[in-house]
Design a protein around this nucleic acid. Sequence first.
DNA 1: TTTACAAATCGTAATGATTACTAACTAGTA
DNA 2: TACTAGTTAGTAATCATTACGATTTGTAAA
Lengths: 138, 138
Amino acid sequence: MTEDQLISILRDSGYKVTPQRLAICNYVLSSKEHPTVEQIHSEILEKNPTISLNTIYQTMDMLIDLGLVQEMRFSGSSSRFDPNTSVHANIICQNCSKIRDFESEGIRELWSRIVMEMNVEPLGQRLDVYVLCDECRK
Amino acid sequence: MTEDQLISILRDSGYKVTPQRLAICNYVLSSKEHPTVEQIHSEILEKNPTISLNTIYQTMDMLIDLGLVQEMRFSGSSSRFDPNTSVHANIICQNCSKIRDFESEGIRELWSRIVMEMNVEPLGQRLDVYVLCDECRK
DNA sequence: TTTACAAATCGTAATGATTACTAACTAGTA
DNA sequence: TACTAGTTAGTAATCATTACGATTTGTAAA
Ligand SMILES: [Mn+2]
Ligand SMILES: [Mn+2]
Ligand SMILES: [Zn+2]
Ligand SMILES: [Zn+2]
C-alpha cells in the first residue's frame, strides 16, 4: 500500500493523519516480524524520539478497527501484530518465538473447503502451527 | 479418559494425585466451554470451597505440560483452556465469545495436506475462525 | 489566513490477569 | 509411623494493557 492510499483510508474513516500514525503504519504494515508494541515503539523512537508507547497502542487499535492488522496474543509474551490479514498460516517456533508466514494457493483453497464444510461466514481466522524452527532444532 | 487413566498419567509423570487436581482435571478435561480460570475456579468452589485460584493456574500449567490442554489467549479477556488438542477448528463468536469446536475427517485430511505443503513437523496448532454465531446474528 | 474545535498525543495513574513467594500441609515411600 | 519432596492457599508483586486528563494539532469553516 502506498502512503497516499493509507492517507485516503484514514481520512475516509474519520481518522486524522498525523506524523505519528504515518510512521507507525509505515513500519507495521510493511513488517514481516509480527512485532510487539515494544518493538514498534523502539523502532519508531529512532526517528521520532518523543513518541509515546500509548500512541502505539492506540494506533494499533485503529489499525485493527480498519481491518489492516490482526492482533495475536500468546502466553508468556505480549501481543504481536500481523499486517497480513489474508488466509495464511503462521509457523511459530516454540523455542525462539520467531514467526514465519506461509501463504499459497493451496492453503487458501483447502481452507475455503474447510470453511464450506463448517458452513460459516468467516470474519477472519488465525491459523497457527507450532514447530521448532531450523535453527532451534540444531 | 477415565479417572484411573488420568491418575496413571499423573503418577507416571511424577505429579502427585491430590483431590484438587482430580477435581480440576475432571471438570476441565470434560468441558466443552473452553473455560477461563475464573470459570473453572467458581465451578470447583462448589464442592471444594477452599480451593485457591492459584491452584487452578498451577494445575493448568501441569495439564499444558502433560499436553492434555491447550491455552488460548485472546484480546479483551483472560486465557481459555481447550482439552481438545487434536486437529480441529475453534469457531469463535466475535460478539459473545462462545467457542464451538469443529472436528471432521475432512478438516484433519485437509490440514495434513497443508502441513505437508509447509514441510514442517507440527508440535501443535491453533485453528480459529471468527464469526457471528447464530444467536448474535439475529 | 485565521479561528474553532474535535480528535490525537503524551505522560502518568489505574487496572487486572498472571506469576512469585512462603508457611502450612500432604501424598507417596520406606 | 515418620520422613520428605511436592503441593496448596493466601497473599504480594509484576507487568502488559487501559484509562485519564492536560496540552497540542489536524481539519474545515469563516
Ligand atoms: Mn502472519
Ligand atoms: Mn477447541
Ligand atoms: Zn526457533
Ligand atoms: Zn455469539
